[in-house]
């Protein structure tokens, strides 16, 4: 749970850094003075944050999913897009039906 939240936070960080880098790159395009150092710094920051995100993703389920994909060891269910409704729980015991008046046609 906490790992998942942290992964979402790192994704948010990646998006913010991507946005900041895009801002620096685009607003300095065509100027005589460019933001070379800032741009390089942000590029490294983006790369580092992406690497961190990949690590977080692998730790929080990525390795498990990879294992499942390679080994195919998983409890499988029916694809539900073609079979509209798939029950995965025992149905609740319904109460005895109460006689209902027939609706008007």
């Amino acid at each position: 749970m906490i790992g998942g939240v942290l992964t979402w936070l790192v994704l948010a960080l990646v998006l913010v850094l991507f946005g900041a880098r895009a801002w620096v790159v685009e607003t300095n395009r065509g100027r005589l003075t460019t933001a070379g150092a800032t741009q390089r710094g942000l590029t490294w920051a983006v790369a580092a944050s992406v690497a961190l995100l990949v690590v977080m993703a692998m730790v929080n389920g990525g390795l498990t999913l990879t294992g499942l994909l390679i080994n195919g060891e998983a409890e499988t269910g029916t694809p539900s897009d073609s079979a509209p409704v798939v029950s995965q729980q025992a149905p609740a015991a319904p109460a005895a039906p109460a006689p209902a008046p027939a609706p008007a046609p």
Partner: peptide
Amino acid sequence: IYILIAGRDFWMTQIS
């Protein structure tokens, strides 16, 4: 990340 984190229950049970 969405599939990995939010869809965990999905791929744990419906990997097929």
